Computed example of a mutant assay.
Amino acid sequence: MTVIDNHEAIGSEGAVRLSEATARDFFELLKPRVMSLVVFTALAGMVMAPGHIHPVIGFIAILCIAVGAGASGALNMWYDADIDAVMTRTASRPIPAGKILPGEALAFGLTLSAFSVCILGVVVNWLSAGLLAFTIFFYAVIYTIWLKRSTPQNIVIGGAAGAFPPMIGWAAVTGGVSVESIVLFLITFLWTPPHFWALALFKMRDYGAVGVPMMPNVCGEAVTKTQIVIYAVLTAIIGVVPTALGFASTVYGVFAAVLGLIFIWYSLGVHRMPEGDARMLPAKKLFAFSILYLFAIFSALMIDHLVATLWLAAGKAV
């Protein structure tokens, strides 16, 4: 039975139907691929933060951030079950596929949200817990319920939700927010529009079918392509700011600059793409590279910081 709205399925005799969801179905509800990115960037924030956190406390912090991100995904799937059932990219998700009932997804998401925030606050600190709570609220309410279906700027503003994890990781260690953690936030924040607009270009029909006002559907391909280039340039610039501010090395800066130039080159390929190109290969290439870019940037930041720490420790030992 396929569920396409946010109501419980009712059996022929009026009784509420119970789902036969498996643990795998609930895991899929957490959007594991998105969760992996959240965990990775949060870990980068923890690694780069000054100070020390006990490994067990650090593990709990990362686990809470991952669960909070998963809770956001579950709440997003609960609210978007109607449009997920129509879009080819999302039709196989647990709720539209009839594996999990909307009410179950809502309860699951709310429960995980509460537990992740409370445990992070009690075990780590309440600033990181507050940031996690705000992130869940921003993604589930501000983005999913409000922005996504009301404005073509949904991704730009809503991207803040996905950009908070490194700041949460930083706060878990330091108990505060700094310029460095804001820069880590901005890297993901500015990266989000070209990443998702590339996806929106080759999924225009899906978004058009469900009435979601993505940039290509509302403003057209030409405007979207120009915006992609602008945000790609901004992403490339913010990528080298850690070196400019002195919390990353020149080696990292050169690496980030090269990655940024490649990002811009792919975005220019999208800009040159003919209007109405059915294959959308440049957009698909940009989308794929953008994922690699973010993982590479945060990997380089962590490696750079660890090398600098070991070098400093070796110098003190001598």
Rank of each mutant, 00 (worst) to 15 (best):
L234Y: 02
T243M: 14
F255Q: 04
F247K: 08
S249D: 07
G260T: 11
T250H: 13
I237N: 07
H271I: 09
A236N: 09
E221M: 07
I230K: 08
L261D: 08
V270G: 10
S249R: 04
A236W: 11
W265R: 10
E221D: 08
V223Q: 10
T250Y: 14
V251M: 13
G260Y: 00
T224C: 07
G220S: 03
C219L: 15
K225A: 08
E221C: 13
P242M: 10
T250K: 03
W265M: 12
A232S: 13
Y252T: 07
V254C: 09
T250C: 03
L268C: 15
R272I: 07
T235A: 09
L268W: 11
I238H: 11
A236Y: 12
C219N: 14
V229P: 01
A244C: 11
Y252G: 00
I262N: 12
Q227H: 15
H271T: 11
Y252N: 00
W265P: 13
V233R: 09
F247P: 04
I230R: 12
S267I: 01
Y231N: 04
G220M: 07
Q227N: 12
Y231G: 03
A232V: 05
V223G: 09
L245K: 06
I264Y: 10
V229F: 06
V223P: 03
A257R: 11
F247Y: 08
V251P: 04
I228D: 00
G269Q: 09
V218G: 09
L245N: 07
F263P: 00
T250E: 13
T224I: 01
R272V: 02
V218Q: 09
G260N: 01
A232L: 10
V229E: 00
L261R: 13
F247N: 00
T235I: 02
A222Q: 10
F263A: 05
I264P: 01
A232I: 01
F255E: 03
Y266M: 02
G220I: 09
A248L: 05
V218H: 06
V270S: 04
S249G: 05
C219R: 12
A236P: 06
L261G: 08
V254E: 09
I264T: 05
L259Q: 01
V254I: 15
A248V: 03
Y252A: 00
V251K: 10
V251F: 14
V258P: 02
Y231K: 05
E221W: 06
I230W: 09
L245Y: 08
A257D: 07
F255T: 01
L245M: 12
F247E: 00
V258H: 13
A244P: 06
V240E: 05
A236Q: 11
Y252K: 02
E221T: 03
K225M: 14
Y252W: 06
V240K: 03
A257T: 12
L261C: 14
P242L: 05
F255R: 05
R272E: 11
I264V: 14
T224W: 07
V241R: 00
L268Y: 09
I262F: 13
L245E: 04
W265K: 14
I238W: 07
A248F: 02
